[in-house]
Design a protein around this nucleic acid. Structure first.
Lengths: 359, 359
DNA sequence: CTGAAAGCGCTTACAG
DNA sequence: CTGAAAGCGCTTACAG
């Protein structure tokens, strides 16, 4: 690094409404009236102009702390993520949300305040330190591993938040925008059935969160439509090679997979299939019930849900703004995932699709 | 979208120090003293405990807005980008900066306020609206196409900012953290010379910004070391096929390229070489004097500068914080780019490197 | 050792 | 139509 100059410059005092008032020869209250833009008629045009000009000359911007203190609005929206979302391999996941939140906040006339997990609890000891969250008018929340303490603080104080991702709490009614995993799963199963698959397999967690339960409900609902539904299978852990071989023997031609931590389930399935010489999708169709980055798998063209992250983020911001502005709103919104065609689903070997059969 | 509930809910009042004071039978000031944890000895243990307990019972958390109001600081750092940096193909460029800014701001105990170009001038008419920038204590600025009006406003008010990227202004002394393009260019030329190249070509803008001038200075400085420096060439636009052919005829074995808008110069050179059947690097070495995303070129393994974006961003934030806290700081820092080896540079055909010749 | 008071920059009733 | 005043929740000198 090259150092070229050494200058010290203290930050100047920010111009306040009082400064503007002095310059324009009016009272501070009048300045506030004009700048906040209450009703236009009360202050004469001529005074207005003088004040606006003084404000512009001084480079005035309202102090958000003062505004929020007096009970008014900051026009600041928080975006808080529970995990540290900044490790590089998560960017593809995180960035679309940020994008959507940013865009919609801008559209709504709010600025964005970014919180990351470490940001909290800076000044003083942890217990007495406030959540910085309160600086914003409200907050969009994102993350799997929710900080329970923060959450209870939010609920207790009725702080306006909207979750990205479905979130059901026993003791509180939290607003969220999530994905309709049940419906999306049902759709994908129906498409597999339409392609001619008659015996399916499902790999996923046992008793996970809401999302997991929704997917499994969707699966069982639609599998029930099959002529022999009891032949379809479910397994709650990644399959061993032997288990996969047994599934194939029992006639499974398509598998649905919850991605799992770090796409672990998908990676495991891919590896097993390779070892057993089972080709995807020729001998086995695979559909992933999520939208991960596929960092641990070899192929990347998995048929899967595409989660419309930007759209979800935008919707969450809109909901938050409605909440803030006291409008009655739907607090629980689920959007459909888009089925991403991919290259891992095909009609079962030796079978034609229903539609082909018809013709 | 599925709607599940329609509820409107106003936020509850939060417990304040006054509430605690009442409950503990002390004054609000004493509560503040205890909670802020000034010097421990002044308030007797017994009173402390009573206050702490009352605070815990009420679920007290200090109001950050009030805190900032008193302190004159809101511990908010702005990150402002002049271009709309959110188009998807720019993410790779933009994200590392955001990453670095975010990380260092957190480390310094500041929260991040995000500004995008459209954010400015929301309320009221454009001309009368103060820049939202002033919401933050200071701001990190990023972008090629600087908004002159905003910039002059910043300079006039002495608003604390640090630029990412070298920025020299005639009328003001702006703090920045940039890349030392002169030195980095010199280095890469010296390496080419070390590999045995004796006639070089340079493709770049005529009379561009500081960065361009720095690169060209670095180029001419180091080319002067060659036995026949006058044979090295410079061209200020992308080469036509004929021009490239002429360069080759005149003995050019290595070319340095400013990436140009959308990597245009690199793409043009690549295309010309392909049409002329000139293979890179066997017949022509190419080094790119920048670190673009290479979205318009076929190959991506260009030998180039790797700009340490996160590091630069962190450095910018640190400088800003020093500025804010009134410490004397170096206001102009240039960091070295890292030479990214790539696959487009090799010894010239029919030549051995200097070191090989020696052995 | 503790409380009363001023003040940070705003908004919002409330008087003139 | 405009200004004076109160008050948001806190910190920090300043008196007792």
């Amino acid at each position: 690094m090259t150092e070229q100059a050494t200058v010290s410059r203290g930050p100047r005092r920010r111009p306040t409404q009082t400064d503007i008032a002095k310059r324009a020869g009016v009272s501070q209250a009048t300045v506030s009236l004009v700048l906040t833009g209450g009703d236009g008629t009360r202050i004469p045009e001529e005074t207005r102009d003088r004040i606006m000009q003084a404000a512009a000359e001084l480079g005035y911007a309202p102090n958000p702390a003062a505004r929020s203190l007096v009970g008014g609005r900051n026009h600041l929206l928080g975006f808080h993520t529970f995990e540290n979302v900044f490790p590089a391999d998560q960017n593809d996941f995180y960035f679309p949300f940020l994008l959507g939140v940013e865009r919609e906040a801008t559209r709504q006339g709010y600025d964005l305040l970014l919180f990351s997990p470490e940001t909290r609890g800076r000044r003083g000891s942890a217990s007495t330190t406030p959540s910085r969250l309160w600086l914003a008018d409200g907050c969009v929340l994102l993350g799997r591993h929710v900080d329970r303490e923060l959450l209870s603080e939010i609920v207790r104080n009725d702080f306006p938040v909207v979750f990205i991702g479905r979130r059901e709490l026993p003791d509180a009614d939290i607003a969220y925008v999530g994905v309709d995993y049940e419906r999306s799963t049902r759709r994908i199963v129906e498409r597999l059935i339409g392609l001619g698959h008659r015996v399916l397999g499902y790999i996923g967690e046992a008793g996970g969160g809401e999302q997991t339960q929704d997917r499994q409900r969707g699966y069982f609902d639609s599998v029930a439509l099959l002529p022999e539904p009891e032949r379809s299978l479910k397994h709650s852990k990644p399959l061993t090679d032997e288990e996969l071989a047994r599934w194939i023997d029992r006639g499974v031609t398509a598998v649905l997979v919850e991605p799992g931590e770090d796409d672990g389930n998908v990676a495991a399935l891919e590896a097993s299939a390779r070892r057993l010489g089972i080709s995807i999708p020729e001998q086995l169709s695979v559909a992933v019930l999520g939208d991960p980055a596929f960092t641990t798998t070899t192929r990347a063209d998995w048929t899967r849900f595409a989660v419309p992250r930007e759209l979800i983020a935008e919707r969450a911001v809109r909901m938050l703004v409605e909440l803030l502005e006291g409008r009655a709103v739907e607090q629980h919104v689920l959007v459909d995932a888009i089925e991403e065609a991919g290259g891992t689903v095909a009609p079962p070997a030796g079978r034609t699709t229903d539609s082909e059969r018809r013709s």
